[in-house]
Design a protein around this nucleic acid. Structure first.
Lengths: 243, 243
DNA sequence: AAATTTGTTTTTTTTGAAATTTTTGAGATT
DNA sequence: AATCTCAAAAATTTCAAAAAAAACAAATTT
């Protein structure tokens, strides 16, 4: 009965008894931002309950929480779905990331002190290490998850000393949806070479305490996702006045 | 059985059969931002089910959705609560409002055109009308709900032409939590005189297309909530570079 | 053939009650 | 008096099945 808990997904925990509520929620969230489901896929509680060895209501509850974060679409009387991919949505999320991450980083520059600089250096070092490995690898597919984690850690560290829990939460929320939009696209790592340089420049600007330059570098780093003409429409996105 | 649906709260609908799911969620949300519950109050599904004439699970589901919006605090194994009042949280939400509303308004200035200007004028006219009535009234308590609605409409109109659904959603999310924090405090309307002037100045700056001034006026309008030394701590909030 | 109605199947929602967990508080121990 | 233990009470979570709604297919009508 409990032998099928996460058996396929989290082999190290297989068979272990754990708090289902947290784990279903966390596991679904992870799958939703790392290619565990296809965009647009229907999420049926009746089906998922078998994978998690619990009742449909418990899954339903987790899906509701995820839908309030917009990681799952919910429609009254017609259930749950993974959101579709959308160039427009990605551009909007990118715009918000630039705004929130820029603001948070500037505040961290002002309030973070040496401890923050040390953490930023450390996070960059880790990320840099992984990005180099990806750069030199023929098949980086094994490294995707590790890279996601390190990238997230770097960007979270940037804003970590902003002294606003709410800003951090909003940023995380946007970051995760951004990641969900990219979960298919970003796996080939053509961009990795430019990325290494961009992360470095963000760090340098931040450590130098240059607020305007830091915002600029964050913008440059994310700019390629801003333009829905990344294959689609309407390039008419206004630059934030912060630039 | 259905005679107690919202009987006390929404008299115009009393007795009418309606979609419970939407209505429970909507009604709870409304109560949560308009003094329908005390800060810190426990929200028991078993109790609320009587008020809404449905089962506890249905209430629970609505509470879960509200908790994901942070309008309700949820803790594993110990249920739901209305969030406490917190000067720090209010300051953080204010900071985010300034950031998002400033950005959205500037984008609206760029993209909105005459139609937006017309809507903004209209929204301001309505708000202005209500604020004048409040200003001249001895007991403005009847007007609280109407004012909330008109104020929200004005601020939503400001950003309505920003061309980012996501920015609007994020702003609404912050706006509602901000309102929840103020649901007790704002009912005496000492500030109404200053408010009338501030709303006017925001509109004038926006219609003039002066982006920097508009941001400044939005900041000034909200500034009184920024300082946790609004009776409490840490005045060290950095001004957004956008100012 | 297109559109509408009818009946069947599947999916989603709601429910009430069982199982689990936390809280409470009376009595025992330090 | 303060702390600890443990059983009773209260609250929360989980569940399987009933009810409601939507989706689908077949038959009928326009």
């Amino acid at each position: 009965m409990e032998s099928r808990f996460f058996a396929a997904r989290l082999p190290t925990c297989a068979g272990a008894k754990m708090n289902q509520d947290i784990d279903i929620y966390t596991d679904l969230q992870h799958r939703l931002i790392s290619n565990g489901f296809a965009h647009g896929e229907k999420l049926r509680a009746e089906q998922l309950k078998h994978e998690y060895g619990c009742s449909a209501s418990t899954v339903r509850e987790a899906l509701f929480r995820l839908s309030a974060q917009r990681l799952v679409d919910f429609q009254e009387q017609r259930g749950f779905r993974v959101p579709e991919k959308s160039a427009t949505l990605l551009a909007e999320l990118t715009h918000l990331r630039i705004l929130l991450e820029g603001e948070g980083t500037v505040l961290s520059i002002r309030h973070g002190g040496v401890a923050w600089e040390a953490r930023l250096t450390a996070a960059h070092h880790q990320l840099s290490h992984i990005e180099s490995r990806i750069h030199g690898s023929d098949d980086p597919s094994q490294l995707v998850d590790i890279w996601f984690q390190a990238e997230r850690e770097f960007h979270e560290t940037l804003i970590s000393s902003c002294r606003s829990q709410t800003l951090k939460e909003s940023h995380l929320h946007v970051f995760i949806r951004f990641r969900q939009q990219l979960m298919v696209a970003d796996r080939s790592f053509d961009f990795i070479s430019a990325n290494i340089e961009q992360h470095y420049q963000i760090m340098v600007a931040a450590l130098a305490g240059d607020e305007a330059l830091t915002r600029q570098k964050i913008h440059d780093h994310l700019a390629r996702h801003l333009d829905p003409a990344n294959r689609t429409q309407d390039p008419g996105f206004a630059k934030s006045s912060a630039m």
